[in-house]
């Protein structure tokens, strides 16, 4: 070995807090390698679309806003898939903490902000895949019908709006140091999706539940993603829902992260 140890004066700190595309690429690859995550984010949402009757004759012919009920379901399950993908990516910090990987990363120049940003971007990459899969199934089976621009707008909103769940996943990931955190989150997400009007339209729930539902974290992204199809315009309350929940979960994640680093 020829150790020409680098003089201390020439030592540099990497730019952008150690953020790197290699790190992002490997993070996405890890997530795609995880079979459970794949089932959660790429198989279950389109399967639910089919199971909930996306291809049924009634849903093809019943019109909703600018399209049909099948299109409504496509958007709903795209939001669901995006929620699951974002939560999985965020919650992966729980596994990393359990394995001591977070501690290992703190022995590198990686800045915690760059680390969390990488997690959010990973969530967005996999979230985009999940939305794309549901949309592809909706398109290729030919049942869903809505104008081209509605496909594009609702897809983008389902994708971007679900970032609230990346923050949620990070928060839970720092709260629960366990390798099995997704077993806890699966049922929780199903409940949140129900309250967010993802599985059934909220007007089929009781008034009390409807009132309650509008304050739950999946409500905002659901309303916003469907607004192009329903022609309801932009709902300020739904935007506030997404912004407030994202801020709360992000604050929670930062709070737990601080405690974590103080203790480790």
């Amino acid at each position: 070995m020829t150790t020409a140890v680098l003089p201390a004066t020439e030592r540099r700190v990497p730019p952008l807090g150690g953020f790197s595309l290699t790190f992002l690429r490997l993070e996405v690859r890890r997530l795609l390698r995880n079979r459970r995550t794949m089932v959660f984010t790429l198989v279950m949402p389109p399967a639910f679309y089919l199971l909930f009757g996306g291809l049924s004759d009634a849903y093809r012919t019943d019109s909703v806003g600018r399209g049909n009920v099948s299109a409504y379901l496509v958007i709903s399950f795209a939001v669901y898939g995006s929620m699951l993908a974002n939560t999985s990516a965020g919650a992966s910090v729980a596994v990393e903490r359990a394995l001591g990987w977070s501690r290992q990363l703190r022995l590198t120049p990686l800045n915690p902000v760059a680390y969390m940003l990488t997690k959010v971007l990973t969530a967005m990459v996999v979230g985009a895949m999940s939305v794309a899969v549901v949309f592809a199934v909706g398109l290729l089976t030919g049942a869903a019908d809505m104008p081209g621009w509605v496909w594009v707008v609702s897809g983008l909103v389902a994708w971007l709006g679900a970032v609230v769940f990346a923050a949620f996943g990070l928060f839970i990931g720092y709260l629960v140091p366990s390798e099995n955190v997704m077993q806890l989150l699966g049922p929780a997400l199903a409940l949140l999706a129900l309250m967010g009007g993802i599985f059934v339209p909220l007007d089929q729930l009781s008034q009390t539940l409807q009132d309650l539902a509008s304050y739950t974290p999946a409500y905002g992204v659901g309303v916003l993603a469907r607004s192009a199809l329903l022609g309801t315009g932009v709902d300020a309350g739904a935007i506030a829902n997404v912004v407030v929940w994202t801020a709360l979960f992000a604050a929670g994640a930062v709070w737990r992260f601080r405690r974590d680093t103080a203790r480790v």
């Binding site: 490997l26 890890r30 390698r33 394995l99 001591g100 990987w101 501690r103 290992q104």
Partner: peptide
């Protein structure tokens, strides 16, 4: 470090 600190799936 003495143990841990590695990702099993990489």
């Amino acid at each position: 470090m003495q143990s841990g600190g590695l990702l099993k799936d990489l």
